[in-house]
């Protein structure tokens, strides 16, 4: 019975090693979420579980409730950073995501601690969330993220944190945000309070493209995006985009949904240029738009 028993001991040992760095985060009504003590005084959690900007508290494994302040949030990657003073809780030990392989046994931890186990179901490349954030690696898990587990650590059998779990980036899939992305976003939030993301300043709605136009331009997609709102003095307005223009491609890629625009623009550095093909008054036109910075979200 040695192999199974040693796996059991490894799993329980992993929980024991990391549990001190796992906290409950009280930032929404009723159901606390989970956070990870990332660096001394810095707690990382899932942005969608931080519903209030104020009156946030965390509860450590010692049962003590400590006030926390919101350092910043990045809805794009579903990460939020909190600061706590006066804590002697241990800091999580981070693992090397490169060592993680499909099929590896992992644990997801919630505050308490509570645990679920499973395997790394799939690993992929860089991907963009539906909220426009860029994540270094797709980490899909075959395990249960119980209520309140979002923001908690994904832990390998050695007890090292390899990701932050969230149910906020997909309705169907259990996903983790790899530690490299967490480190990048947390650093930016600590330094500047927000994560800058490309922005055009337009409201768009899907619209069917005229058949003749599609033939003339050999556009594959049947749908473009009609401009229904232009933010005054925004990046698109400065470039000359007008109400009623139909956006057909951005940097050569057809855009048929607002997510397609976010995928191109969200990834671009503020100040860089994107080339847009538009349909204006029945005629195609090209224009260059200098990407601006998305203003912080108002709540």
């Amino acid at each position: 019975m040695n192999a199974l028993l040693s796996l059991s001991n490894d799993l329980a040992g992993a929980v024991e090693r990391v549990r001190g760095a796992v906290v409950a985060v009280n930032a929404r009504p009723r159901l606390p979420s989970t956070g990870v003590h990332w660096r001394p005084g810095i707690i990382v959690t899932a942005d969608h579980t931080v519903r209030s900007d104020e009156d946030i508290t965390i509860i450590g494994v010692d049962g003590r409730t400590v006030a926390a302040s919101l350092v910043g949030r990045d809805p794009g990657t579903d990460l939020a950073v909190l600061r706590v003073h006066d804590t002697d809780l241990p800091v999580a030990e981070l693992g090397d995501p490169a060592s993680l392989k499909v099929g590896h046994i992992v644990l997801a931890l919630g505050h308490g601690p509570r645990a679920s186990w499973g395997v790394v179901s799939a690993l992929g490349g860089r991907w963009r969330t539906w909220r426009g954030g860029e994540i270094d690696q797709l980490m899909r898990l075959d395990l249960t993220l119980y209520p309140g587990f979002s923001g908690g650590p994904l832990v390998d059998v050695q007890g090292r944190v390899v990701g932050i779990n969230t149910s906020g980036l997909s309705r169907q899939l259990e996903l983790a945000i790899p530690v490299s992305t967490v480190a990048r976003v947390a650093d930016e939030l600590i330094d500047t309070g927000h994560v800058s993301r490309g922005f055009l300043g337009v409201g768009l709605q899907p619209a069917r493209l005229p058949e003749a136009f599609r033939r003339r331009l050999a556009v594959a997609s049947e749908i473009g995006l009609i401009v229904v709102n232009v933010q005054p003095d925004g990046p698109a307005a400065k470039a000359g985009l007008q109400l009623g223009d139909v956006l057909v491609t951005l940097d050569g890629a057809p855009v048929a949904a607002t997510e397609d625009v976010q995928a191109v623009v969200g990834a671009r550095r503020v100040g860089s240029t994107v080339t847009a093909t538009i349909l204006r008054a029945g005629a195609p036109a090209e224009m260059s738009i200098t990407v601006g910075e998305r203003p912080p979200r108002r709540r």
Binding site: G112, A115, S116
Partner: peptide, 20 residues
């Protein structure tokens, strides 16, 4: 599976083992 949590669970009585 694995042991999920130790200790009382509000919705399920005081002293049951919780397993994932």
């Amino acid at each position: 599976g694995v042991i999920h949590a130790i200790g009382p669970r509000r919705s399920a009585g005081p002293s049951l083992i919780q397993a994932d």
